[in-house]
């Protein structure tokens, strides 16, 4: 297990790409703020929800730039034990986790594939943004994780999603997807902090060839989306081998274009060189989010258009 005292050595390889590196390291010892998304599919009147939480001592404040998101105090409040959670009015999630769906811009009537969907924070966010009127295929390869996804879709009252259990890299062709989200399995470095689950994820995925899996998923996602369609690729890691180099692989294999995107959190351009290897210059249009600047899990997001 990576101890917080070992973090400086582990993250040292990112010293050149993570801004204010010392501040970043110091930040890993601090807890993250608590956020939730208010599910207006089930709670048409947000005031009922906010008043209910307030009666239990939760102060919730809307987050500028993030419709339906609230910052909750105290940050260690067990939101998962509340009536509001049980009734599907809220979905606790880290703020940066909202970014891939912001890049995806889901709209009513679109066919959307969420390739690695479980446990469903982004699937349910897509459903909410598209007013329960997009056609969402929510896929995950593991049955235990899919069970959690199905439970969350039910809890949040989503009627526009179906669930499937395929390995993403062999998801069948045939549906004319307008958009595909690949929120890929990753080393989870962006989640890392003292005493939190980031450690566990880092540990669990340590021996898997993640970049190979990620490349397989992204290429398949690209082949599944229709010409002119959008693929959003995201991870919660800093590692360029799981981020820019995966997208670089796609740009070399397929006729794809990276699309610039506006985000409501501070971010930095993707790297165009890593360990002496030059990468596609357009990768600067991808976005890197760092925890000490966003007060949320570290993230990487690339918005990609299929040209042909």
């Amino acid at each position: 297990m990576l101890k917080v005292t070992e973090a400086p050595a582990y993250f040292a390889r990112y010293r050149e790409i993570i801004p204010d590196f010392e501040k970043f390291l110091a930040h890993l010892r601090e807890p993250l703020p608590l956020y939730f998304r208010l599910n207006e599919l089930k709670a048409p009147d947000p005031e009922v929800v906010l008043a209910g939480l307030a009666r239990q001592g939760v102060k919730a404040e809307a987050v500028p730039g993030f419709p339906h998101f609230y910052r909750a105090e105290p940050r260690d409040f067990p939101l998962g034990n509340t009536e509001e959670y049980y009734l599907g009015y809220i979905y606790p999630m880290t703020l940066s986790s909202a970014l891939p769906v912001i890049a995806l811009e889901p709209k009513p009537g679109e066919y959307i594939l969420d390739m690695c969907a479980a446990p469903g924070s982004k699937t349910t966010q897509i459903a909410q943004v598209a007013e329960d009127k997009a056609v969402i295929v929510a896929n995950d390869r593991r049955l235990d994780r899919l069970t959690a996804l199905v439970a969350n879709l039910k809890r949040l009252g989503v009627a526009c999603a179906l669930t499937t259990l395929y390995r993403g890299e062999v998801f069948p062709f045939g549906v004319p997807f307008d958009k595909v989200l690949v929120d890929a399995p990753c080393s989870g470095e962006g989640r890392y902090r003292e005493g939190y689950e980031g450690e566990l994820l880092y540990q669990k995925e340590g021996h898997t060839n993640l970049p190979a899996i990620q490349k397989g998923l992204l290429v398949r996602a690209f082949d599944l989306v229709k010409v002119g369609g959008i693929v959003v690729y995201s991870t919660c890691t800093f590692n360029p081998e799981e981020n820019e180099m995966v997208v670089d692989y796609l740009l070399r294999k397929r006729q794809a274009e990276i699309v610039s995107c506006t985000y409501p959190l501070p971010h930095h351009p993707g790297v165009t060189e890593w360990e002496g290897r030059p990468l596609h210059p357009d990768l600067q249009k991808t976005a890197r989010f760092y925890p000490h600047e966003t007060q949320a899990v570290g993230f990487f997001v690339a918005k990609i258009k299929r040209l042909f």
């Binding site: 066919y111 329960d132 056609v135 295929v137 899919l146 179906l162 669930t163 499937t164 045939g174 549906v175």
Partner: peptide
């Protein structure tokens, strides 16, 4: 079950599904 009416249902019907829509 309640499920959003897609522009065309047929391509979706080729998928092996676990659940479709909301139990109504």
């Amino acid at each position: 079950w309640l499920f959003i009416a897609p522009p065309d249902l047929r391509p979706l019907q080729n998928l092996k599904v676990q659940t479709v829509g909301l139990l109504f």
